[in-house]
């Protein structure tokens, strides 16, 4: 049986869904007690204790410190260290989001302990100090690694989306306040402002994505993809070959170093399907590949395939949609 400390991720006072994945993962361990740490003073503690209790948390520790009005990787890492030292948990866990991994890395660096990022399988029994073997992802999900871990306190993150958050109908968690001593110097990495785009469908939330690769040939070549995305309420995506050529901004890039997409349908035109592109696209419910090469990896892995030149196929698809809409 082990004590588990879960780092909550929050966004301007709201618990991030990733937190519930982490608590669900903690529950899969032989856990005696699940503690959750909230480093964000703008979170409503009672509300959080209720939600987190529903997912199986026993105690929620909410921080109270004037420095912590927003996110700051160093300050959050230091708070986590304070709570680790007080609770001496067997396991420290977070969801492997950008911030989850960063704060765990900060805490591990401060304690000079190992930190194993993006695990997809944890042994049920993580108490004690024996060596453990964990399964984690490498190459953004293209490969799995068996990682050995030697540490008294096991600091690990669980890959985002590897666990589906599931409530257990638990009662509200107990609520405790943490008042850490924090050096003012930690203000140096507190978030000081935001620049947010207008809300709307994004690449990661669009129901249909029209992706174009090197086969599109130019920035102008994306016009039919843009038109299709506009017609169907989707978004345009692209491969790294496209961003490298300056045809599209990087925010449109799908893949290991771009965005992970999960639409109902991904239409991949003129994309060969390199592994680093594929890991960003593989969560799509269905994939339609349009390619001149029937042997392309994207074609082989797709559910549907049109053999042909995208510059002829896509305009024909636009015309067909217009024809049917005119009829309706």
């Amino acid at each position: 049986m082990s004590d588990v400390l879960v780092l909550a991720e929050t966004d301007r006072g709201e618990l991030a869904p990733a937190t519930l994945e982490a608590v669900t993962a903690a529950r899969s361990l032989d856990a005696s007690t699940i503690h959750v740490l909230i480093c964000d003073v703008t979170v409503d503690g009672d509300g959080a204790a209720e939600v987190l209790g529903d997912y199986g948390a026993d105690t929620v520790h909410v921080v109270d410190h004037e420095l912590l009005a927003d996110f700051g990787p160093e300050a959050w890492g230091q708070v986590l260290v304070t709570v680790i030292e007080e609770l001496e948990p067997d396991v420290v866990l977070a969801c492997g989001t950008s911030k989850g991994n960063e704060v765990l890395a900060q805490a591990a660096a401060r304690l000079d302990l190992p930190f194993v990022a993006n695990c997809i399988e944890l042994p049920a029994d993580m108490a004690g100090t024996d060596d453990l073997t964990l399964t984690r992802v490498q190459w953004g999900g293209s490969l799995l690694e068996e990682a050995g871990l030697q540490a008294g306190i096991r600091i690990v993150s669980v890959a985002h989306h590897a666990v589906e958050a599931e409530p257990v109908g638990g009662v509200a968690a107990g609520l405790e306040t943490v008042t850490p001593e924090l050096d003012d110097v930690l203000s140096r990495t507190m978030c000081v402002g935001r620049e947010m785009a207008e809300a709307g469908v994004t690449l990661s939330t669009a129901p249909i994505v029209f992706g174009g690769g090197r086969g599109v040939g130019s920035a102008e070549g994306f016009a039919p993809l843009e038109e299709l995305a506009a017609m169907l309420g989707g978004r345009v995506g692209c491969s790294r070959a496209v961003t490298n050529n300056g045809w599209r901004p990087h925010r449109d890039q799908v893949g290991q170093t771009g965005t992970r997409i999960a639409p109902e349908l991904y239409v991949a035109s003129g994309i060969s399907g390199a592994i680093q592109h594929w890991v960003g696209a593989m969560a799509s419910k269905r994939i339609l590949a349009i390619n001149t090469d029937p042997e392309a990896n994207m074609v082989v892995k797709a559910d549907y395939f049109v053999h042909g030149d995208l510059h002829q196929v896509l305009p024909a698809v636009i015309d067909e949609i217009k024809r049917r809409r005119a009829r309706a």
């Binding site: 302990l113 190992p114 930190f115 194993v116 073997t133 992802v137 490498q138 999900g141 293209s142 490969l143 799995l144 690694e145 068996e146 990682a147 050995g148 871990l149 030697q150 540490a151 593989m282 339609l288 590949a289 074609v299 082989v300 892995k301 797709a302 559910d303 549907y304 395939f305 049109v306 053999h307 042909g308 030149d309 002829q312 196929v313 305009p315 024909a316 698809v317 015309d319 067909e320």
Partner: peptide, 28 residues
Amino acid sequence: GGQSRMGLRQPPVQESTTVKLGDGPGAA
């Protein structure tokens, strides 16, 4: 440090059969 690489393996493959919808603009 306290982390070591013991081995690598491929993730489980997502089996898929590709349905061909057609050739060129005729597939629209």
